[in-house]
Design a protein around this nucleic acid. Structure first.
Lengths: 142, 142
DNA sequence: AATACTATTGATAATCATTATCATCATGAC
DNA sequence: GTCATGATGATAATGATTATCAATAGTATT
Protein backbone atom coordinates (compact mmCIF):
# COMPACT_ATOMS: atom_id res chain seq x y z
CA UNK A 1 0.00 0.00 0.00
CA UNK A 2 2.73 2.43 0.94
CA UNK A 3 4.62 1.45 -2.19
CA UNK A 4 1.64 2.29 -4.34
CA UNK A 5 1.20 5.65 -2.71
CA UNK A 6 4.89 6.37 -3.05
CA UNK A 7 4.54 5.89 -6.79
CA UNK A 8 1.51 8.15 -6.84
CA UNK A 9 3.51 10.82 -5.05
CA UNK A 10 6.46 10.54 -7.39
CA UNK A 11 4.20 10.68 -10.41
CA UNK A 12 3.30 14.15 -9.23
CA UNK A 13 6.89 15.14 -8.45
CA UNK A 14 6.49 14.81 -4.74
CA UNK A 15 9.15 13.05 -2.70
CA UNK A 16 8.51 10.31 -0.18
CA UNK A 17 10.22 11.65 2.91
CA UNK A 18 10.38 10.34 6.47
CA UNK A 19 7.76 12.81 7.61
CA UNK A 20 5.36 11.90 4.84
CA UNK A 21 5.85 8.21 5.52
CA UNK A 22 5.11 8.81 9.21
CA UNK A 23 1.91 10.67 8.42
CA UNK A 24 0.88 8.02 5.94
CA UNK A 25 1.48 5.31 8.54
CA UNK A 26 -0.71 7.19 10.98
CA UNK A 27 -3.50 7.31 8.43
CA UNK A 28 -3.10 3.62 7.60
CA UNK A 29 -2.96 2.61 11.28
CA UNK A 30 -6.17 4.55 11.81
CA UNK A 31 -8.05 3.47 8.73
CA UNK A 32 -11.73 4.24 9.15
CA UNK A 33 -11.03 7.11 11.56
CA UNK A 34 -11.54 10.74 10.67
CA UNK A 35 -8.57 12.58 12.09
CA UNK A 36 -8.00 16.30 12.47
CA UNK A 37 -4.62 17.79 11.61
CA UNK A 38 -3.83 18.14 15.30
CA UNK A 39 -4.65 14.52 16.01
CA UNK A 40 -2.42 13.45 13.15
CA UNK A 41 0.36 15.64 14.54
CA UNK A 42 0.30 13.96 17.95
CA UNK A 43 0.19 10.46 16.50
CA UNK A 44 2.95 11.27 14.01
CA UNK A 45 5.16 12.64 16.78
CA UNK A 46 5.21 9.19 18.36
CA UNK A 47 7.13 8.07 15.28
CA UNK A 48 8.99 11.30 14.57
CA UNK A 49 9.12 13.63 17.57
CA UNK A 50 10.26 16.76 15.76
CA UNK A 51 7.65 16.86 13.07
CA UNK A 52 5.93 20.24 12.84
CA UNK A 53 2.30 21.18 12.40
CA UNK A 54 2.97 22.98 9.11
CA UNK A 55 4.35 19.79 7.62
CA UNK A 56 1.29 17.91 8.75
CA UNK A 57 -1.02 20.38 7.04
CA UNK A 58 1.08 20.43 3.90
CA UNK A 59 1.28 16.66 3.72
CA UNK A 60 -2.38 16.05 4.41
CA UNK A 61 -3.36 18.49 1.69
CA UNK A 62 -0.92 16.98 -0.76
CA UNK A 63 -2.20 13.49 -0.05
CA UNK A 64 -5.76 14.74 -0.49
CA UNK A 65 -4.87 16.36 -3.80
CA UNK A 66 -3.67 13.05 -5.22
CA UNK A 67 -6.72 11.30 -3.76
CA UNK A 68 -4.94 9.24 -1.18
CA UNK A 69 -7.00 10.95 1.52
CA UNK A 70 -10.44 12.48 1.73
CA UNK A 71 -10.66 15.89 3.32
CA UNK A 72 -13.98 16.95 4.75
CA UNK A 73 -15.59 19.29 7.20
CA UNK A 74 -18.04 18.02 9.77
CA UNK A 75 -19.64 21.31 10.81
CA UNK A 76 -17.28 21.96 13.69
CA UNK A 77 -14.97 24.42 12.03
CA UNK A 78 -12.06 22.12 11.29
CA UNK A 79 -11.17 19.70 8.55
CA UNK A 80 -10.81 15.98 9.06
CA UNK A 81 -8.93 13.49 6.93
CA UNK A 82 -9.43 9.81 6.26
CA UNK A 83 -7.72 7.24 4.11
CA UNK A 84 -9.45 6.64 0.80
CA UNK A 85 -10.82 3.17 0.63
CA UNK A 86 -9.98 1.68 -2.77
CA UNK A 87 -13.07 1.14 -4.84
CA UNK A 88 -15.69 2.38 -2.43
CA UNK A 89 -15.69 5.91 -3.63
CA UNK A 90 -19.21 6.61 -2.49
CA UNK A 91 -19.83 6.63 1.20
CA UNK A 92 -21.88 8.69 3.58
CA UNK A 93 -21.28 9.65 7.17
CA UNK A 94 -23.43 9.27 10.25
CA UNK A 95 -22.41 11.71 12.95
CA UNK A 96 -23.53 11.02 16.51
CA UNK A 97 -25.05 14.12 18.07
CA UNK A 98 -24.01 12.87 21.50
CA UNK A 99 -20.50 11.41 21.37
CA UNK A 100 -19.50 12.87 18.00
CA UNK A 101 -18.35 9.55 16.61
CA UNK A 102 -18.48 9.21 12.87
CA UNK A 103 -19.75 6.03 11.28
CA UNK A 104 -19.39 5.26 7.61
CA UNK A 105 -22.12 4.00 5.44
CA UNK A 106 -21.61 2.23 2.19
CA UNK A 107 -23.89 2.61 -0.75
CA UNK A 108 -25.12 5.29 -3.00
CA UNK A 109 -28.81 5.34 -3.92
CA UNK A 110 -28.68 8.96 -4.89
CA UNK A 111 -28.81 8.24 -8.58
CA UNK A 112 -32.42 9.20 -9.02
CA UNK A 113 -31.85 12.51 -7.26
CA UNK A 114 -28.79 13.19 -9.39
CA UNK A 115 -30.74 12.43 -12.52
CA UNK A 116 -33.39 14.89 -11.53
CA UNK A 117 -30.74 17.57 -11.04
CA UNK A 118 -29.10 16.83 -14.36
CA UNK A 119 -32.46 17.11 -16.09
CA UNK A 120 -32.44 20.75 -14.98
CA UNK A 121 -29.21 21.42 -16.82
CA UNK A 122 -26.62 20.77 -14.11
CA UNK A 123 -23.61 18.50 -14.50
CA UNK A 124 -23.24 16.70 -11.18
CA UNK A 125 -19.68 15.84 -10.17
CA UNK A 126 -19.88 14.81 -6.56
CA UNK A 127 -22.06 14.84 -3.51
CA UNK A 128 -21.77 14.85 0.23
CA UNK A 129 -24.37 13.33 2.49
CA UNK A 130 -24.31 13.45 6.27
CA UNK A 131 -26.80 12.09 8.74
CA UNK A 132 -27.05 13.48 12.25
CA UNK A 133 -28.24 10.82 14.65
CA UNK A 134 -27.81 9.18 18.01
CA UNK A 135 -25.61 6.12 17.76
CA UNK A 136 -26.58 2.73 19.23
CA UNK A 137 -24.02 3.04 22.05
CA UNK A 138 -25.30 6.43 23.17
CA UNK A 139 -28.90 5.33 22.99
CA UNK A 140 -28.17 2.34 25.20
CA UNK A 141 -26.36 4.44 27.74
CA UNK A 142 -29.64 6.16 28.67
CA UNK B 1 -43.57 37.71 9.11
CA UNK B 2 -41.51 40.04 11.26
CA UNK B 3 -44.32 40.07 13.81
CA UNK B 4 -44.30 36.30 14.01
CA UNK B 5 -40.57 36.24 14.50
CA UNK B 6 -40.79 38.96 17.12
CA UNK B 7 -43.12 36.72 19.10
CA UNK B 8 -40.74 33.80 18.67
CA UNK B 9 -37.94 35.95 20.03
CA UNK B 10 -39.93 37.16 23.00
CA UNK B 11 -41.03 33.64 23.81
CA UNK B 12 -37.37 32.94 24.41
CA UNK B 13 -36.79 36.14 26.38
CA UNK B 14 -35.00 37.86 23.56
CA UNK B 15 -35.84 41.46 22.69
CA UNK B 16 -36.64 42.78 19.26
CA UNK B 17 -34.18 45.64 18.92
CA UNK B 18 -33.41 47.92 15.99
CA UNK B 19 -30.28 45.97 15.16
CA UNK B 20 -32.08 42.67 15.15
CA UNK B 21 -34.86 44.08 13.02
CA UNK B 22 -32.28 45.37 10.53
CA UNK B 23 -30.59 41.98 10.31
CA UNK B 24 -33.93 40.26 9.95
CA UNK B 25 -34.90 42.63 7.15
CA UNK B 26 -31.66 41.84 5.38
CA UNK B 27 -32.41 38.14 5.58
CA UNK B 28 -35.98 38.65 4.37
CA UNK B 29 -34.88 40.92 1.51
CA UNK B 30 -32.43 38.24 0.49
CA UNK B 31 -34.63 35.22 0.89
CA UNK B 32 -33.13 32.29 -0.98
CA UNK B 33 -29.60 33.67 -0.63
CA UNK B 34 -26.97 32.13 1.61
CA UNK B 35 -25.20 35.02 3.27
CA UNK B 36 -22.02 35.06 5.32
CA UNK B 37 -21.84 37.13 8.50
CA UNK B 38 -19.73 39.71 6.72
CA UNK B 39 -22.20 40.06 3.88
CA UNK B 40 -25.00 40.53 6.38
CA UNK B 41 -22.92 43.18 8.15
CA UNK B 42 -22.51 45.27 4.99
CA UNK B 43 -26.14 45.00 4.03
CA UNK B 44 -27.29 45.78 7.57
CA UNK B 45 -25.08 48.85 7.72
CA UNK B 46 -27.10 50.37 4.89
CA UNK B 47 -30.00 50.46 7.33
CA UNK B 48 -28.04 51.03 10.51
CA UNK B 49 -24.53 52.36 9.91
CA UNK B 50 -23.10 51.74 13.37
CA UNK B 51 -23.99 48.12 13.73
CA UNK B 52 -21.01 46.01 14.77
CA UNK B 53 -19.83 42.63 13.55
CA UNK B 54 -20.20 41.08 17.00
CA UNK B 55 -23.88 41.96 17.04
CA UNK B 56 -24.29 40.38 13.64
CA UNK B 57 -22.76 37.12 14.80
CA UNK B 58 -24.76 37.15 18.00
CA UNK B 59 -28.01 37.88 16.22
CA UNK B 60 -27.52 35.34 13.46
CA UNK B 61 -26.76 32.65 16.00
CA UNK B 62 -29.75 33.59 18.11
CA UNK B 63 -32.04 33.52 15.11
CA UNK B 64 -30.62 30.15 14.13
CA UNK B 65 -31.18 28.82 17.64
CA UNK B 66 -34.90 29.61 17.44
CA UNK B 67 -35.06 28.20 13.92
CA UNK B 68 -35.69 31.43 12.08
CA UNK B 69 -32.47 30.88 10.14
CA UNK B 70 -30.49 27.89 8.96
CA UNK B 71 -26.77 27.97 9.61
CA UNK B 72 -24.56 25.84 7.45
CA UNK B 73 -21.04 25.42 6.24
CA UNK B 74 -20.29 25.02 2.56
CA UNK B 75 -16.71 23.74 2.77
CA UNK B 76 -15.06 27.12 2.53
CA UNK B 77 -14.30 27.70 6.19
CA UNK B 78 -17.12 30.08 7.00
CA UNK B 79 -20.74 29.74 7.98
CA UNK B 80 -23.61 30.96 5.85
CA UNK B 81 -27.14 31.77 6.93
CA UNK B 82 -30.45 31.64 5.13
CA UNK B 83 -34.03 32.33 6.08
CA UNK B 84 -36.00 29.22 6.99
CA UNK B 85 -38.73 28.62 4.51
CA UNK B 86 -41.93 27.73 6.41
CA UNK B 87 -42.95 24.18 5.84
CA UNK B 88 -40.19 23.07 3.52
CA UNK B 89 -37.91 21.84 6.21
CA UNK B 90 -36.10 19.43 3.94
CA UNK B 91 -34.03 20.90 1.19
CA UNK B 92 -30.71 20.13 -0.37
CA UNK B 93 -28.08 22.36 -1.89
CA UNK B 94 -26.41 22.27 -5.26
CA UNK B 95 -23.10 24.12 -5.20
CA UNK B 96 -21.62 25.20 -8.51
CA UNK B 97 -17.95 24.24 -8.72
CA UNK B 98 -17.33 27.14 -11.07
CA UNK B 99 -19.20 30.25 -9.87
CA UNK B 100 -19.95 29.04 -6.35
CA UNK B 101 -23.64 29.81 -6.56
CA UNK B 102 -25.89 27.78 -4.35
CA UNK B 103 -29.15 26.44 -5.70
CA UNK B 104 -31.80 24.92 -3.50
CA UNK B 105 -33.55 21.72 -4.22
CA UNK B 106 -36.85 20.73 -2.74
CA UNK B 107 -37.72 17.19 -1.84
CA UNK B 108 -36.51 14.50 0.39
CA UNK B 109 -36.36 10.94 -0.93
CA UNK B 110 -33.89 9.90 1.72
CA UNK B 111 -36.43 7.96 3.72
CA UNK B 112 -35.26 4.57 2.56
CA UNK B 113 -31.67 5.41 3.48
CA UNK B 114 -32.75 6.70 6.88
CA UNK B 115 -34.73 3.55 7.49
CA UNK B 116 -31.73 1.46 6.72
CA UNK B 117 -29.67 3.44 9.25
CA UNK B 118 -32.35 3.17 11.91
CA UNK B 119 -32.47 -0.58 11.42
CA UNK B 120 -28.87 -0.62 12.63
CA UNK B 121 -29.82 0.98 15.92
CA UNK B 122 -29.36 4.67 15.18
CA UNK B 123 -31.94 7.35 15.83
CA UNK B 124 -31.73 9.73 12.89
CA UNK B 125 -32.50 13.37 13.66
CA UNK B 126 -31.40 15.30 10.62
CA UNK B 127 -29.37 15.12 7.47
CA UNK B 128 -27.42 17.34 5.16
CA UNK B 129 -27.01 16.66 1.48
CA UNK B 130 -24.91 18.70 -0.91
CA UNK B 131 -24.31 18.19 -4.60
CA UNK B 132 -21.23 19.60 -6.29
CA UNK B 133 -21.97 20.34 -9.90
CA UNK B 134 -21.62 22.78 -12.78
CA UNK B 135 -24.67 25.00 -13.04
CA UNK B 136 -26.52 25.56 -16.34
CA UNK B 137 -25.20 29.13 -16.66
CA UNK B 138 -21.57 28.09 -16.27
CA UNK B 139 -21.98 25.18 -18.67
CA UNK B 140 -23.39 27.50 -21.31
CA UNK B 141 -20.59 29.98 -20.91
CA UNK B 142 -18.14 27.45 -22.36
C1' DA C 1 -42.59 59.41 34.25
C1' DA C 2 -38.81 57.85 37.34
C1' DT C 3 -36.61 53.65 38.89
C1' DA C 4 -34.53 49.34 38.86
C1' DC C 5 -33.29 45.34 36.60
C1' DT C 6 -31.51 42.95 32.91
C1' DA C 7 -30.63 42.29 28.00
C1' DT C 8 -28.05 44.27 24.31
C1' DT C 9 -24.57 46.74 22.04
C1' DG C 10 -19.98 48.19 19.93
C1' DA C 11 -15.17 48.19 20.34
C1' DT C 12 -11.67 45.44 20.83
C1' DA C 13 -8.89 41.69 22.56
C1' DA C 14 -8.52 36.80 22.43
C1' DT C 15 -8.87 32.35 20.28
C1' DC C 16 -8.46 28.73 17.00
C1' DA C 17 -7.55 26.57 12.69
C1' DT C 18 -5.05 27.26 8.80
C1' DT C 19 -1.64 29.46 5.58
C1' DA C 20 2.49 32.10 4.33
C1' DT C 21 7.32 33.17 4.97
C1' DC C 22 11.95 32.09 5.13
C1' DA C 23 16.30 30.30 6.38
C1' DT C 24 18.04 25.69 6.76
C1' DC C 25 18.21 20.91 5.48
C1' DA C 26 17.49 16.64 2.61
C1' DT C 27 16.82 14.29 -1.73
C1' DG C 28 17.58 12.71 -6.45
C1' DA C 29 19.80 13.56 -10.90
C1' DC C 30 24.08 14.34 -12.90
C1' DG D 1 30.25 14.52 -4.35
C1' DT D 2 27.94 18.65 -6.45
C1' DC D 3 24.03 21.05 -7.71
C1' DA D 4 19.31 22.32 -8.22
C1' DT D 5 15.26 22.00 -6.16
C1' DG D 6 11.86 20.18 -2.97
C1' DA D 7 10.79 19.73 1.95
C1' DT D 8 11.04 21.02 6.70
C1' DG D 9 10.30 23.46 11.23
C1' DA D 10 9.72 27.66 13.63
C1' DT D 11 7.10 31.28 13.68
C1' DA D 12 4.50 35.20 11.98
C1' DA D 13 0.31 36.30 9.64
C1' DT D 14 -4.39 35.67 8.43
C1' DG D 15 -9.34 35.20 8.70
C1' DA D 16 -13.42 33.77 10.94
C1' DT D 17 -15.48 33.53 15.17
C1' DT D 18 -15.98 34.20 20.25
C1' DA D 19 -15.19 36.43 24.75
C1' DT D 20 -14.83 40.56 27.55
C1' DC D 21 -16.50 44.67 29.41
C1' DA D 22 -18.07 49.20 30.09
C1' DA D 23 -21.79 51.85 28.28
C1' DT D 24 -26.56 51.89 26.60
C1' DA D 25 -31.39 50.68 25.77
C1' DG D 26 -35.78 48.00 26.82
C1' DT D 27 -39.17 46.36 29.97
C1' DA D 28 -41.68 45.93 34.08
C1' DT D 29 -42.69 48.09 38.41
C1' DT D 30 -43.87 51.68 41.09
Amino acid sequence: MKQKIKEKLEDSNYRMTGQRAAILEVMIDNQGEHLSAEEVLYKAREKMPNIGIATVYRTLDKLASIEVLYKSMFDEGRYRYELCDEGTHQHHHIICLDCGNITEMEDDLLNNLEQRIESKGFKVIDHDLKFYAYCPACRNRK
